[in-house]
């Protein structure tokens, strides 16, 4: 249980970021890249300032900055959102590898970072934050005017526009928020869990977060549940691979694939009958019909 809670924040926060962006109508394949930016700059920020909290902030800002590029391409220039996201992932892969080498002279890991303070249960603040975030996002979606507008913009932006809602501005805010959440999730990996940045981060967690968005039917609570489920599968896999030892290492791949296989199964069986927001991924053209 503790292991689940410790491993959950990155995935959970990234999944919420995905929900936020996609409910506003912007597909965010770039979660993986945004997490990577967040993970690296959180580590770098902590090392330079000596404060892990400022590190987390750096991570969120770096994620948001990466998301800013996505927003600019998708909203301003109406680029294909999937292509833009993939490009972002590739840029993150190359650029961060380069920066790791440039700043820390290493191609593998960064120096250790100052750890986040832990409470008496051994959890850091990020765990509690990530557990509260889905509730907050749920409240925003269901009860606030801001949330109502997000839902409308993701379903039928032209209808919202005729009522005076500023579609592109709202979408930009959501994409930036999405990046900040994903960046914070990435920070959770480097500063929160491992205590250093590893050049393989986030190792597919961003894509897993996307799966959690779909599995969770594009709702904050659903996606959070799915993320916790994946985190549980992840924790289980770690436990098992510890106990398997070298002889059975070949089986590790099976366990690694477990969460994804379960997602595919669930989707294929139609247990979670899902429908994406109607305007998800469709660029908004103000004078279009």
């Amino acid at each position: 249980m503790n292991a689940i809670l410790d491993f959950a924040p990155p995935l959970l926060l990234a999944a919420l970021g995905g929900v936020l962006s996609e409910r506003a109508g912007v597909v965010n394949i770039g979660l993986e890249g945004m997490m990577r930016f967040g993970a690296f700059f959180a580590a770098a920020g902590s090392i330079w300032t000596g404060s892990p909290l400022i590190g987390l902030l750096c991570g969120a800002l770096a994620g948001a900055a990466a998301a800013g590029v996505h927003a600019l391409l998708c909203l301003r220039y109406r680029a294909d959102q999937v292509v833009s996201g993939i490009a972002l992932n590739l840029v993150a892969l190359g650029l961060i590898t380069f920066l790791l080498e440039a700043f820390f002279g290493s191609s593998g890991v960064s120096p250790p970072v100052p750890a986040l303070p832990r409470d008496r249960f051994g959890h850091n603040g990020l765990v509690y934050f990530s557990l509260a975030a889905p509730l907050v996002l749920h409240f925003i979606f269901s009860r606030t005017a801001f949330g109502l507008r997000i839902r409308a913009v993701g379903e039928h932006p032209h209808a919202a526009a005729t009522l005076g809602v500023r579609v592109l501005r709202l979408r930009a805010i959501c994409v930036l928020g999405s990046g900040a959440l994903a960046g914070l999730g990435g920070a959770g990996l480097s500063v929160g869990i491992l205590g250093q940045f590893d050049s393989r981060m986030p190792a597919g967690q961003g894509f897993m977060a996307l799966a959690a968005v779909v599995f969770g039917k594009w709702t904050p609570l659903g996606a959070a549940g799915a993320a916790l489920f994946f985190a549980a599968a992840d924790a289980l896999q770690r436990q098992l691979s510890f106990s398997l030892h070298a002889a059975d290492m070949r089986l590790e791949g099976v366990f690694l694939a477990l969460p994804y296989a379960l997602t595919l199964l669930v989707l294929a069986l139609g247990l979670g009958r899902t429908r994406a927001p109607a305007a998800d991924g469709i660029p908004y053209e103000p004078e279009g019909r």
């Binding site: 409308a152 379903e155 039928h156 209808a159």
Partner: peptide, 20 residues
């Protein structure tokens, strides 16, 4: 029609000028 299908009637009516 400029209506958002998954939202309710009242949500569609007040969208953009929600009483708070």
């Amino acid at each position: 029609f400029m209506l958002v299908g998954p939202l309710t009637v009242w949500e569609n009516v007040v969208l953009g000028r929600e009483p708070l």
